[in-house]
């Protein structure tokens, strides 16, 4: 996942700042607290805002470089807000044996996305995943964290249409 450079000039945003302070108050005392803090922030905000790095570093007595290094090391953490919907297509060996590469190409083409990039309308992101643990029901995908197995291009199109429709209806 791409990460932006560290910014610490952004104007304070009350929602983000209170989320960061709340998470730090709850978790900073845990042994090995950094990953739990980053997960809690991403769960609350959808991403780990780069301007939260100084506060996290301060609370854990780490350098900003160390915190940034951890955020950028792990594929899971995002440094920018996600699109409303994320499609993960597993491309590990078991899914490859059942046509995952063709499914991934279909997903990108259908949604008009580059890999790990947004669709033109900014609604979907297509990501590669490396094993969702559904290897006996390949190929597998996850849409917004919900898993779907024995996927075909036809089922994929129907699923995406349902997701897009539920968004328009909301």
């Amino acid at each position: 996942m791409t990460t932006s450079p560290i910014h610490h000039t952004a104007a304070p945003r009350p929602g983000v700042d209170s989320a960061v302070q709340g998470v730090l108050a709850q978790l900073a005392g845990e042994p090995g607290a950094l990953l739990p803090i980053l997960h809690a922030l991403q769960d609350a905000l959808g991403y780990v805002p780069p301007d939260s790095v100084p506060a996290i570093a301060d609370a854990l007595n780490l350098s900003r470089a160390e915190v940034h290094g951890v955020i950028s090391y792990y594929h899971h953490f995002r440094s920018s807000p996600p699109t409303p919907h994320t499609v993960q297509v597993c491309r590990a060996e078991a899914c490859q044996s059942m046509g995952a590469e063709a499914l991934l190409a279909h997903a990108r083409q259908h949604l008009g996305c580059g890999l790990h990039a947004q669709s033109g309308d900014g609604v979907f992101t297509v990501e590669a995943a490396y094993c969702l643990g559904l290897c006996a029901s390949s190929p597998a995908i996850a849409v917004d964290g919900q898993v779907h197995a024995r996927m075909t291009p036809q089922k994929f199109d129907a699923l995406v249409a349902r997701v897009a429709h539920s968004r328009e209806a909301a």
Partner: peptide, 21 residues
């Protein structure tokens, strides 16, 4: 975890548990 395959290696896993890369 946070999407790192090598964290299945025991010493990398321990580093990750300690809050490091």
């Amino acid at each position: 975890g946070a999407g790192s395959y090598v964290c299945g290696e025991e010493t990398a896993l321990l580093e990750s548990l300690e809050g490091k890369r």
